[in-house]
Every structure is written in structure tokens, then in C-alpha cells.
Design a protein around this nucleic acid. Structure first.
Lengths: 211, 211
DNA sequence: CAACCCATGTAAGTGTCACTTACTTTGAAT
DNA sequence: ATTCAAAGTAAGTGACACTTACATGGGTTG
């Protein structure tokens, strides 16, 4: 929303050497790289500062502490994610399973391609659980799934059944994502074609089942 | 099973004050508590040593580094888990969905009741991915599930279909467990009765689906 | 029974980190 | 031109992982 400012310390307020000019957003870029490289638990603010060419105390002019930096990053990433999700369902007809599959693929691809950020966004982070901004941002993202599910089932998005089915789908893609990036599936010799798996799952969860 | 030795440094090999007598296992107990209390990423060896009443260098006589302590703990926990799983399916008839549900409940209960250990055992830990002892221990546990699934489907346990269905179930209970302990589900206002959810899932994954 | 030795303990040290405090610089408003 | 607050720095605190050199003492051996 605010600052997707590009690479490095370009444009606005070019620094004099002392005052940086755009440290906040450059720090976020640096942290993003480090989170990807070392994981959100193991990156250090000190190293991000070094990367940005400032002292290790400088970041504290822009963020109170580690969790606050991470929150800013998560907010950014979720915004981007919501946009991507809207984009990937758009080509498929409303109410089709393809939409569901596209959303699942989008989730899993995020995990595979950016495991560090995925862990940060969809895992636990100290002090992020009760944050209202993050809750709201999460609702925006999950709401896209619930709506697509409701359209498949031909019910209203606020029908609890839609929420339940969406949650069942979520558990599967979420579980699959973690088992993949944590290496548990591969460790157990489990490797199935992913699109097939996704398709079978959405069929079983959203289809009628003989009782 | 082995040493639920109570508080402090009791019984066997009572120390002279200098040599502890059974530091290795007391350290493991201390670490287990700390992992539960602060999470496997945030516990410190130093604090475990303090808890055991020894210097901060002492643990390094028994373990090379942090991951090695954690590995010992995981091996213990998985052994216990495999035993518990065999125990919970035992009352239910072979080939019944109750067996599957019991296994699912067992997994989720572990996550809920011991989130710290669950994260450690079923999450990612530095240098645990390619460890052969851990892989083998994991196979033992997952094998119980695959066997139960095969019995429901009336096929051989080495049939790839059994592995696939078992994996689908795994993704769901795994995903559900993480979403619960990370607070993501509650954050989104999602709270369904768990046994109902489990039952619906096992029905859908192991039942025939009209194509 | 004495001597020894090695597993197991300690103290002290290194380098890193998160975060704080007191001071400095500088662009912008007055 | 002066001033002032935002944004930077240096130096410090306390914690930690892990290392090194040294200490202790129980079990084995002569």
C-alpha cells in the first residue's frame, strides 16, 4: 500500500552519508533476504543493519524490536499474496474446481519458493497472534478461499458449511506445505505429483460423499 | 518409560557434589521442560545447565551442540509416540475407521498438549533432516498409519495407494495441528468440533468418491 | 592398597546478539 | 541565521553458544 520502493537506496531523499534517506524500507528489503536465507528465527537485526550500511543501533529508530520488523514484513507479504490469489483465480470460471486448485497451488508454491517468508507469514511468531492488523489481513486472504468454496457449493459465503469446507482444504494445503518444506515427506519417501494430489483433495472435500 | 525421575538430582549414583552421577538424563529432562516452556528455538543450554545445578560448560561433555541435545529428545519422544499409537488403535477392530480416527486424535492431542515437543518432533530442526536415525524412527511411526489405512482399504501395506491415502490424512491432521497451535484457526474464528471434523475427513479420504 | 588415568566437572574467555543510553549530525521550519 | 527534532553513532549491558585449559575423584590396575 505504502512503500514498495524498489532496490537499494535510490530516489527520494538521497542521503548525505550520514542520514540514510530511506532506511526503513531498505531494512525491510534486507530482512526479507535474511529471513529467506536463515529463517525468521535466526536472522539478526545487526546483520540487516550491516547490509544496509548503518550502525547496529540505527534500526531501532524505525522499529521497536524484532517482532515489529517482522510484522511490517508480514503485512507487506500478505497484501501481495491477496493480490496474487485474486489474479490466479481470475482466468477460471466462477464456481469451478479449477479456482480451488489454483488457490491451492498458489499457497503451496509460496511455501516452496519462499519457505522463509512462508514460515513467517503462516507460522507462529512471538506477539503476532493477537495482533489485530494481522488478523484482519488474514481474514482478507482466507476470505478469498471461503468465497471460492461457497461458489463451488452453490451456497452463501457466510454459510458455516462454506467455512468448514474451506478450513478442511486449508488444513491439507497447509499440512502439505509444511511437510514439504520441513523435508518430512521426502524423508519418508513420499513424492506424488502435486497437481494430481490437489485435484483429488478438492474433489473429495467439495464433492458429495455417499454416507 | 525410562526415567521420569522426579525433581532434582535424586536416586542413582548420588553425586559427591562434583561429579553429578546422571547429568545426561537430567539435562534431557530439563531441556524437555524448557522446550515446552519456551519452544525449541528459544531454550538455552545455559539455562538447562543452571536447572541441573552444573556449570554452563558441563553439558558439552555429553552433547556436542544444541541440535544433538534436541535429537536425543526427539528420539525419546518418537519412541514413546509409537508406543502410544499402538495402544490407542488396539481396542478398535482391524480395518475400522475408528482406528484411523484414534490415530488422528492421538496426533492432534500431542500437538495440543505438548506444543513445544510437537514442534520439535514434527517441525524442522537444523541438521535433523538428513539424520538417518530420525528417518528410521519416523518410518516406524508413519508405518503404523499406513498399515491401518491399508487395512481399511483392504489392500497391502506396500501398495502405493495406501501410502498416498495415508499421506493425505497426514497432511490434514498435520495442517490442523499447526493451525491450532499457531493460533491461526482461532484467529480466523474457526472452531469446529474436532471429532466430527476428523471423522468427516477420514470418511472422505478413505471412502469411494463418485467421479 | 597405592598410583594412575580418564570421564566428567569448572573457570575464564571469545565472538555475537538484542536492546539501551547518551551524544552527534543535519535538513527543514521559523 | 537559529533552532529543533528526526535519524544517525559509539559504547555499554547482560545473555548465549561454544572453546580451552585446568581440576577432581571413582574405577581399574599393578
Amino acid at each position: 500500500m505504502n512503500n514498495l520502493s524498489s532496490d537499494k537506496k535510490v530516489e527520494v531523499a538521497a542521503k548525505s552519508g550520514y542520514h540514510h534517506g530511506d532506511l526503513r524500507s531498505e531494512l525491510l528489503n534486507a530482512v526479507r533476504l535474511l529471513v529467506e536465507e536463515k529463517g525468521s528465527e535466526n536472522f539478526s537485526i545487526a546483520e540487516a543493519a550491516r547490509k544496509a550500511g548503518v550502525s547496529s543501533a540505527a534500526p531501532y529508530r524505525h522499529f521497536n524490536d524484532k517482532p515489529e520488523i517482522l510484522k511490517a514484513l508480514v503485512m507487506q507479504a500478505m497484501e501481495e499474496k491477496a493480490m496474487e490469489m485474486r489474479r490466479v483465480i481470475e482466468p477460471h470460471p466462477i464456481g469451478s474446481l479449477e479456482r480451488i486448485n489454483a488457490l491451492g497451488k498458489c499457497y503451496i508454491d509460496f511455501a516452496r519458493n519462499h519457505p522463509g517468508m512462508f514460515r513467517l507469514v503462516f507460522g507462529k511468531t512471538e506477539s503476532h497472534e493477537n495482533d489485530d492488523d494481522l488478523r484482519q489481513q488474514g481474514e482478507k486472504v482466507f476470505g478469498i478461499v471461503v468465497e471460492a468454496v461457497a461458489q463451488v457449493l452453490g451456497i452463501q459465503a457466510d454459510d458455516p458449511e462454506a467455512l468448514k469446507r474451506a478450513y478442511m482444504l486449508w488444513t491439507m494445503v497447509h499440512g502439505h506445505s509444511w511437510l514439504q518444506i520441513d523435508g518430512k515427506a521426502k524423508q519418508q519417501g513420499i513424492e506424488f505429483p502435486e497437481d494430481h494430489l490437489l485435484n483429488e483433495i478438492s474433489n473429495r472435500i467439495l464433492g458429495e460423499i455417499p454416507r
